[in-house]
Amino acid sequence: MAWFVKPQYTIKKSATIKQNEGLWTKCPECHSIIYNQDWENNLHVCPHCGFHDKLNAFERIQMLIDPGTFVETFNNIVSADPLNFNDGTPYIEKVKNAMLKTNLKDAVVTGYGKLEGHMIELAVMDFNFLGGSMGSVVGEKITLAIENATKHKRPLVIVCASGGARMHEGILSLMQMAKTSAALKRFSDEGGLYIAVLTNPTTGGVTASFAMLGDVIIAEKKALIGFAGPRVIEQTIKQKLPPGFQSAEFLLEHGFVDIVVERKDLKSTIARVISYIKGK
């Protein structure tokens, strides 16, 4: 065997990042290094630049719902594969991987619980599960949550975070937009209060259905909210978008969002809206 051979492997550069794991978090926006405990305490908001990083569904629920009052509903509903979709990896495989990665059944968690004492029906989307995409399960669970809210006359809060429709379920994903919107119409006609919370990012089919149908729409600071994604628009118009385009603040300015809040004020703001409309 020769003394000097070219190594048959490549050096993984992630080693340095790994060292930081467990202690420090890097802000994805301004790249400043934040002590993990501070990051957690600050609800994944960068203390330096104010960037709101994604929360997973249960972190979000923990943040919004009074301790010990959350009851999860409809968590026995999982994806089927109506199209037999295979783009190299079978769709079912992708769903399984996402389940393992996120410990969720699909991209939304539904349930009810108390928010500053108000019993609410809640649906929280999780972007980590296949980009928060809406397929039949998301549509069905959100519709069931809306119907539950209608039945129990509870205020409804949906926390949106989604890249849009789940193309692996084809036209059936598209139909979820009609389904959820139809359920919201019934809820609204019954006098139900629906507060939509838009978080980073909320785009595509979710924006074009329940995200934009709130009686009151609250967005988290700097969240990207739009119908078409920025990349699609840039490709269409063949120019760069100005900074801040499709941000929560941009939508507020154009009249499509009622309130833009920092994450730490989200819970109290929702509670205030409920109090104003439904009383204490």
Binding site: D189, T207, L213, F227, A228, L241, H254
Partner: peptide
């Protein structure tokens, strides 16, 4: 598809579609 341009976003393409789904359903 609905036009994915800047003006559409400024004027609420998502909201316009959502509103139609909402109203047409009933």
């Amino acid at each position: 598809g609905a036009y994915p341009g800047m003006e559409g976003e400024e004027r609420g393409q998502g909201e316009a579609i959502a509103r139609n789904l909402f109203e047409m359903s009933a």
